[in-house]
């Protein structure tokens, strides 16, 4: 088993997550895709740590885990709030920050 094969798996997982973010319109699916991307990054870290036999990769994974946990809790709370106020989960309708400047 070569070290790049793990990184290739991580890259594929990351790109799949990115594809999900780009294609889906439902915020919940976008959040799920972001989780996949974070997970892929964690895989890359752990692989790098294993390659050199050092614990740092696993430590980084722990931080990513904590970050993902707080991100998901805030993100889901935002989803609840968005649904409550706009009665939709469609991100293409949540574009109130559009700059309507007329020239």
């Amino acid at each position: 088993m070569q070290s790049y094969s793990v990184l290739v798996v991580a890259a594929i997982l990351f790109v799949l997550g990115l594809l999900g973010v780009l294609t889906r319109r439902n915020i919940i699916f976008i959040l799920i895709s972001i989780e996949i991307m974070l997970n892929a990054a964690g895989v890359a870290f752990v692989a790098a740590g294993a390659r050199w036999g050092q614990p740092d990769g696993q430590v980084m994974f722990l931080f990513i885990l904590a970050m993902a946990a707080s991100e998901v809790s805030v993100g889901l709370a935002l989803v609840m709030q968005v649904y409550h106020q706009h009665k939709t989960l469609d991100v293409s309708k949540l574009n109130n920050l559009k700059d309507d400047i007329e020239v």
Binding site: L18, L22, V91, S92, L94, N95, K98, I101, E102, V103
Partner: peptide
């Protein structure tokens, strides 16, 4: 600068997907 602003403000369309594509 107002003219430039008019051009660049097109990129700010409020859609998350556009931003992600730009980053990509």
């Amino acid at each position: 600068f107002q003219w430039l602003n008019g051009i660049f403000s097109v990129s700010q369309d409020g859609s998350v997907r556009t931003y992600v594509i730009s980053v990509l």
